[in-house]
Design a protein around this nucleic acid. Structure first.
Lengths: 258, 258
DNA sequence: CGTCTGGTTGATACGACTCAAATTTGGTGG
DNA sequence: CCACCAAATTTGAGTCGTATCAACCAGACG
């Protein structure tokens, strides 16, 4: 079973085979979006809830003069605002980062699900609350952390979220974001992101090259980022033992990525 | 009828007398919190949903070294995370700004409400989605706007939200925040907030003194803030005509506040 | 009437931005 | 397999917005 949504929800609760089956049905890809294309735009009427089945996307907002802020990243298994269709118009856009497989889920489907699968429904609430929590942490990140801490924090978050859906490989994960994306997400310029990444590399906190990220010592990265994992709410009844690897043996170092 | 929550929800939908009655019952004050005291702290187990009946509060997060970020303001009629009790631990604290009247609402009460009052339930979802939207706008605010725009934006938002629950008086409203609060909310220092407020005053965009805010020309303030009201989602079926006053006649000017 | 909190001012420092150009990388077609 | 191009990354120099630190002031309050 490699359904990212199911994996994610099982962080929160145990699912029955029927529950899992319902999730499988929900995860049917209805649309492929090319990289850097928009999935939905600000102002449009949201008719569907979106589930990211495969690939990365981002939620972003723009200012009239073109300034752009990425306000969230969507990873596989992420669910996009339970109930959005209640609103009349989107207040933001969603764009694909990579090639993206999406499941567009109608209001009827959602209603059917919540009527029949209370376990899943509750888990979706949990998902939704966690996303809000992440949004708050981003507010803290932008308001209080320095550029260095800020980027460290974002990288740690993305790595941990990927790990939660089984998309890491030891100390590493795929990492399709450009420095421009990082800039838009952290409220910095691409130039400054570049220099800050170099600092992080110099301090051996990350290896980032060829769209691939390695974090040799997540504990140390968390420290510099003042990363408090509580906001991801990963600790819950259904939690599996927390297979958090210790620091990478020195012998491997950055070569491990290659 | 001066129930702030009811007023807020009627922005979204029309409520029946029974609906309104249910809301009245929900709004029973169960606790008074003194100004600058915490309502609930990070790490605690959230057993209740909180409804702000009267007074201002804020949601905030802190870093180990003491840096503090206000991530949201709660105004009368604001509802605090439908369903929070699903989470095991608070990822943030909530503190009173003024003397605060709160209704602590149990899970059972919520379940009873959602089981019997679909109209209200849907309106509460709307409320919840709007709060998320506000959180995203804050992310944009912190990430992209300059200090000047940022503060202008925050003041405009608070004024409009107060107006939506009937707590403005023409161009004015009570405004209990200190410059320190504004600093914590905007990611600036209090000193810089001070100087920026002076700029806004110099440009006659605001009158702010004695915990009282006047916005003589909201249109102009919105312009400098690049304020796009769509994120407040005030336009909906139940909307009453938008009693948005034009600019304040020049003859009144800043004296009007006194 | 002293004390305290919140607001204001001034001088100086620094983190992040801007602009501009060079270099590297990855993809594409001949 | 190499030549070419566009996108992404890197570097350098100079500037600016916001922070820092340190006083000082005003009104509220006990």
């Amino acid at each position: 079973m490699n359904n990212a949504l199911a994996k994610r929800l099982e962080t929160f609760t145990r699912l029955s085979p029927d529950d899992r089956h319902a999730i499988e049905r929900l995860s049917k890809v209805t649309r492929i979006v090319a990289p850097r294309r928009d999935l939905i735009r600000e102002g449009e009427n949201p008719r569907f809830v979106h589930l990211m089945v495969d690939g990365w996307a981002c939620r972003y907002k723009t200012l009239p003069d073109g300034r752009r802020q990425i306000v969230a990243f969507f990873l596989p298994g992420d669910f996009c605002d339970l109930n959005v269709y209640i609103l009349k118009a989107m207040d933001h856009s969603v764009g694909a980062i990579t090639r993206l497989s999406v499941a567009d889920i109608s209001r009827d489907e959602m209603d059917r699900l919540t009527a029949t699968r209370p376990r899943v429904t509750q888990a979706l609430w949990w998902e939704s609350l966690v996303n809000n929590s992440i949004q708050r942490e981003w507010t803290l990140n932008l308001g209080q952390r320095t550029a260095y801490e800020r980027i460290a924090h974002l990288l740690a978050e993305l790595y941990l979220r990927l790990r939660a859906v089984g998309l890491t490989n030891g100390y590493s994960c795929d990492f399709p974001l450009t420095q421009n994306d990082l800039a838009d997400a952290t409220g910095l310029t691409a130039v400054h992101v570049n220099r800050t990444l170099q600092d992080l590399r110099r301090n051996e906190l990350i290896v980032l090259e060829h769209k691939h990220l390695t974090i040799p010592d997540i504990k140390r990265l968390k420290e510099v980022a003042m990363f408090n994992p509580n906001y991801l709410h990963l600790e819950h009844e259904g939690r599996h033992l927390d297979a958090c690897p210790g620091p990478m043996p020195l012998a491997l170092g950055s070569q491990a990525a290659t």
